[in-house]
Design a protein around this nucleic acid. Structure first.
Lengths: 240, 240
DNA sequence: TGTTGACTTTAACGTTACGTTAGGACTTAT
DNA sequence: ATAAGTCCTAACGTAACGTTAAAGTCAACA
């Protein structure tokens, strides 16, 4: 196989293959006449390995070491690397936290009463707070609650606007483009304001919209049937 | 202030300050005679800002844009950046997951019975599973459980060995070097095998060792007083 | 067989945010 | 005044390729 074929097959650039050859990471057979590189099946599977490690965030230098060493070293390298990744993730968590604080301070004051703030968006107060704690743990709920408390008037208005827009669409097909566009707005809003929610919490939230009638009632403040509509739209949205 | 003073004060290299000057990010006053750079207090606070954004992962190019623009853009930039960070964190989570699977497959089979595996290490089965769910949430507990299930015979043996070593030391001072070395082994083991535990879970686990007598009984299988000893050693370990 | 178009090669500069010498000017303390 | 300490600019090095650029090779069609 020639460079371009390989490149297209595995989804890397020709330059990348050249580079790997240059640094001695993957050196295919070179036709002495034409100078063309020719990759065997073996080269390909080695390339797969390389890309695998790369996806895990290894540097090419380390990949080169790891790939040409006995098995035990590979395991050790994997474990070490995982440790580094986990540390990095912790640092990222801290960074995200700092960012969120900064964003809050940029946004300025929050002048609505807390009751006002919790209207329409609710699950960290009232009947189901305890249930939420059971389902998702203390720390998560506290964090979510703190974030809702810090919401700006502006954000609150934005959220209500999204709810109203959704309510106005609630008699249409939840899979329609308009409905999906609106649910995407809502999805983006949640993503921007409550990033600490795990994917499971998102899913669970969607489920509860229809399964738990207390949720249903709360959401249907904005229009009867809204909870059901949103749930269906969310499922559709998540499916693609 | 001259370069070196500034550098030492804020913890960056002189080269970094030169670089920021080169690219027009932070250009202090330059004495026309000596050519020396002189940083004012204003320069310093600007530098703080720069470093802050840098810590958040902004490129110098973006910092330059953000710092010289109206407020609204800054907020937008912050929000955009947080989004990117969150996406990156998700990708990292996936990478860590893949790494863990790979590590498992490297380690090979697991031939002990599940009862065997849960002996000595327990909190995802038996009386307190339900309690764990309440405290830390469903997903976390399930994840932890799955990881315990996948433990290799080897790992299991390793863990038991650590427990036995700790048990043999349990009548000594928990703050002694020997005790701390042993608790570090245990800490590293947990870190290597149950990376999905949050710091709070770690702390909580330590607390429960003495506060919850069901835990105490389970750990004390390896020797009476072990739970208390471990808890004290953990607190000491965490404090430094 | 000649030519054309698709593909290949090496070479080398560009990117990011500095680190790291290197050689020389300026300042400060003794 | 002289040495020690600090400052300057200039320029190459790093990681993992991207991006031209100039030139050789291959397959097919006329």
């Amino acid at each position: 196989m020639k460079v371009n074929e390989v490149a297209k097959l595995v989804g890397v650039s020709v330059r990348t293959l050249h580079h790997y050859d240059e640094i001695g990471l993957l050196s295919p057979f070179k036709d002495p006449d034409s100078g063309y590189r020719h990759y065997t099946d073996e080269d390909l599977s080695l390339l797969q390995q390389i890309l695998f490690f790369k996806e895990l965030g290894f540097s090419l230098k380390k990949i080169k070491e790891v790939i040409h060493n006995p098995e035990y070293d590979q395991l050790e390298a994997l474990q070490l690397h995982r440790k580094l990744l986990i540390e990095k993730r912790h640092r990222m968590d801290e960074m995200i936290g700092t960012l969120e604080q900064t964003i809050e301070s940029f946004k300025g004051g929050n002048h609505m009463s807390n009751e006002e703030k919790f209207k329409g968006f609710d699950f960290s107060q009232n009947p189901y707070e305890e249930e939420a704690r059971e389902r998702w743990g203390n720390a998560r709920v506290e964090e979510a609650k703190a974030q809702v408390m810090k919401m700006t008037d502006n954000d609150q208005e934005l959220m209500n606007a999204i709810y109203r827009k959704l309510a106005s669409l609630r008699h249409e097909d939840p899979t329609s483009d308009a409905a999906q566009a609106a649910i995407k707005e809502w999805y983006d809003f949640l993503n921007n304001h409550f990033a600490t929610y795990t994917p499971e919490m998102f899913q669970g939230l969607g489920m509860m919209y229809v399964q738990d009638e207390r949720f249903t009632r709360n959401i249907d403040q904005f229009g009867e049937g809204l909870a059901k509509f949103m749930s269906e739209a969310m499922i559709e949205f998540g499916a693609k």
